[in-house]
Design a protein around this nucleic acid. Structure first.
Lengths: 120, 120
DNA sequence: TTCCAATACATAAAATAATTAGGTATAAAT
DNA sequence: ATTTATACCTAATTATTTTATGTATTGGAA
């Protein structure tokens, strides 16, 4: 017999990172090589001390899109009775990640110029 | 007689700042007191050396929403035969801007923790 | 040993926020 | 004279995310 359990989800502390999610994930994959979805959400939460929390509804469709586009490739791994789906950057994906990181840095610098105009 | 002229618009160098536009505008209004729409687009372009370019389609509806919400108030000014619409933060708007700036800073720090994990 | 929380995947509807593409008009520069 | 810059605006579309689901296994606490 199976009972569906409701979980309360408090995931969005900020809506600021629209558009930044993709480069964030690419960066993590670049640093850590091989990751699965749930691991990505946990690592982001840990690194940012809970400030950035990725919702599954944003993450999984994005990962699937990146796979479609050839940015990442996947392999399944059986953990007991459960299946994990690991994601790795492809060669093309690594190139794209470098470009994305350059763009992200420029964006962050630009943001900083606006928020901290004195430090220009 | 009137001829409609087509302008070529190249405005989006990055789609990263979705969600950041509102705090950016609030920050500029806090720093500069009284600004009109076009001036905001030009200042952002100038400060960021052309990296961030706000489209009018994003800016004006956002400014109107901020006015509706009581974050900003407006006054018209006649410049020759033309009308300028100046925006100023309300008292409530200034408070909200402080909060938005705190959030933005935390967001930027979080981004930095992900992009520069060694500097943690 | 039963229940809850955590792990682990996924999708669909709705909301949000931007781009793209138009429209109108004045003033300055070429 | 014509183009570019200034200055406002809106609507349709696109993109991205939240919210709300659904399914299922595993580990720990009561």
């Amino acid at each position: 017999m199976y009972w569906n359990v409701m979980y309360i989800r408090i995931m969005n502390k900020s809506t600021l990172y629209k558009g930044c999610l993709e480069p964030i994930i690419m960066r993590l994959l670049k640093d850590n090589g091989r990751m699965y979805g749930y691991q990505i959400t946990q690592m982001v939460k840990e690194i940012t001390k809970g400030e950035l929390q990725i919702t599954e509804g944003a993450l999984y469709p994005l990962l699937h899109r990146l796979e479609e586009q050839g940015v990442v490739e996947t392999e399944m791994e059986n953990i007991g009775n459960r299946v994990r789906k690991y994601y790795t950057l492809t060669k093309a994906g690594k190139k794209q990640t470098s470009i994305a990181m350059d763009e992200l840095k420029i964006f962050m610098q630009s943001l900083n110029l606006i928020v901290n105009p004195k430090l220009a």
